[in-house]
Design a binder for these strands. Structure first.
Lengths: 203, 203
DNA sequence: GTCTATATAAAGATAGAC
DNA sequence: GTCTATCTTTATATAGAC
């Protein structure tokens, strides 16, 4: 079995080697997430990130050599979590259990990063960068729908899975629902997802 | 009742005043759609559009004064169709009929423009431009979910509507399903949509 | 770790010839 | 209707001082 692994251990390592948390590197990431969510990756310049931090472009370049590196750093933690969710779900016995396990954890992850996940699903620039810099990202993309509906699913169920995944991510990011609390939105999203992939909701 | 109307009658007018179809203006639009779909609006430069047409940037600027104008011209025909669909659905008697009427026509529209609709739902640059240049676009955005689930829907049904709309659009654009024929993909998308907004499929 | 200053390339956009 | 040439602004990125 090919294994999908992140090569981006640097930031984690740095945080353990005595450096204070919320160091400069992390501050860049935080600022970048906010800008990316509002203007998209291509619509965000290093100048905008620097301005949001109250520093200059050169200060940003001290932490990251390129803009692509920032994108990878922004997205890697979520991808790692998604990978963990994927593995745990795949380890369940029975397709129904795998479906429920993945969808439950996935919805929770989406809620925990309302703006960030849409980068992964909607921003063409992010997808291009990940295909360039993230080893086995394409394999990763294939495994997600499979764990949801199983390897023997017909086209109809694969389409339903795609609608569920992309719909959940986009709806969570929609300004339409910013007023909804995390718990309530999470429940509704999970509900919608389960209805789509054919499972009944446990009460 | 406030009416949502396109101010962009120019291209239609030009096509009726004796000008050959597939004129330069339309050729720019066609080239732009292809580039926008692949690289996003911010990721597409006028140079790329010009190159795709085999002309220079200045030739493109003869037809459109700004890049924003191109985006509006690309998206306006679809928005007009969407508006027509919206009105026809709103005119139905009974919420079930409105839901079915809209979803059926919407899915067909999405299939007819697999790549284009995702610009409307996913591309933040397009949304910004439309909010700037399309009168009553925000009102338009509000009416779409409402016709799907009705004015008295609770949060759960509104979330389901959002998942359906965004999911259908994104799934239709997904490279995962490029091999599926229009008719089959349309059926599966409609199926998923109806399951989400609570209606049973007519056979 | 942050700054000023700068290099270099590409972006959007315009003027004017053909 | 398309071209060459050019303007202006902004982008990514680097060098080197503090």
């Amino acid at each position: 079995m090919t294994s999908v692994t992140s090569e981006q251990g640097t930031s984690t390592a740095r945080r353990t080697t005595g450096g204070r948390p919320a160091d400069g590197r992390q501050r860049v990431i935080d600022a970048a997430v906010a800008q990316f969510a509002e203007y998209g990756v291509e619509g965000t310049s290093l100048q905008m990130i620097a301005d949001a931090m109250g520093v200059t472009k050169a200060a940003v370049y001290y932490h990251f050599k390129t803009k692509d590196e920032i994108v990878v750093a922004v997205v890697t933690p979520v991808l790692d979590q998604l990978l963990a969710i994927l593995r745990e779900a795949e380890a369940q016995r029975g397709q129904a259990a795998r479906t429920r396990a993945f969808l439950t954890a996935f919805t929770r992850l989406v809620i925990g990063h309302r703006q960030l996940l849409t980068l992964l699903y909607d921003d063409v620039a992010v997808l291009r960068i990940l295909h360039e810099h993230w080893p086995h990202f394409d394999e990763f993309e294939r495994r997600v729908p499979l764990v949801l509906v199983g390897p023997d699913a017909d086209a109809g169920r694969l389409v339903a899975a795609a609608v569920a995944l992309t719909g959940i991510v986009a709806a969570a990011a929609s300004p339409q629902f910013t007023h909804l609390g995390d718990a309530e939105l999470e429940e509704h999203l999970l509900d919608a997802g389960l209805r789509l992939v054919g499972a009944r909701r446990r009460r």
